[in-house]
Amino acid sequence: MAETTTRARLRWGLLDVIVVVFALIPVLWIASLSFKTPATLTDGKFWPREWTLDNYRTIFATDQFVRALVNSIGIALIATAVAVVLGAMAAYAISRLDFPGKRLLVGVSLLIAMFPQVSLVSPLFEIERQFGLFDTWPGLILPYITFALPLAIYTLSAFFKQIPWDLEKAAKMDGATQGQAFRRVIAPLAAPGLFTTAILVFIFCWNDFLFAITLTSTERARTVPVALSFFTGESQFEDPTGAICAAAVVITIPIILFVLFFQRRIVSGLTSGAVKG
């Protein structure tokens, strides 16, 4: 028995390592490139022979990247906040209330989630230019909210459905209004779901390239993924690869921080003890 479990564990361990390495090699490679000097950039070695932070210095020295970083953070945070708040209200209604047009709401949000975004790019471009939203923060925040909302509604309604109905009834019997019942009883229990949704939405906004490249034209609203594609070297003849890699590493950091920060709050079993169990 003991032998088979050790062997099984070994087998699983090996499998895990393979998967992790497979997934991380491109990331590690980019990280490695970002620390190489221009001379050794194309030497094909995984481990840099000469370490340098010049690439990082370069990107933070240019206003281009810093502006883009600020744009990215601001736009993604605002879009996430709005989408999660609206999504929470919609998901609560969907999972808890019976109202006319409920099916329609769910259907439409599903439709939006499945709509090919590419086909919307040109119309959106025209619309935003008409309304003066082109190349502004709201010009990106609005489409992000639109496409993040279905995602938010789906994840959140799945979470809300797990919360025992009786708790809300109990709160109402205890003298709470519908709003109080939501804020003081349901919301704290839904917190893990809210954080999970926030992470997903944030990553969606943060990673977007399509809208960002079509709906911006200057540093006013350009986000990092787009800024990266506009990177050039100091001079025309310089290869920007190192700088691009450094920027790529930098923009993954907020995502990692975001996930780590919220992961602590995603405590499973928060609802245990509510009902008989």
Partner: peptide, 19 residues
């Protein structure tokens, strides 16, 4: 509304607030 009836209820599931 329930809150205006001044009635208390005990549920089969107890419905205690877990937090």
């Amino acid at each position: 509304a329930p809150r205006d009836r001044d009635i208390a209820m005990v549920f089969q599931s107890y419905a205690l607030y877990p937090n």
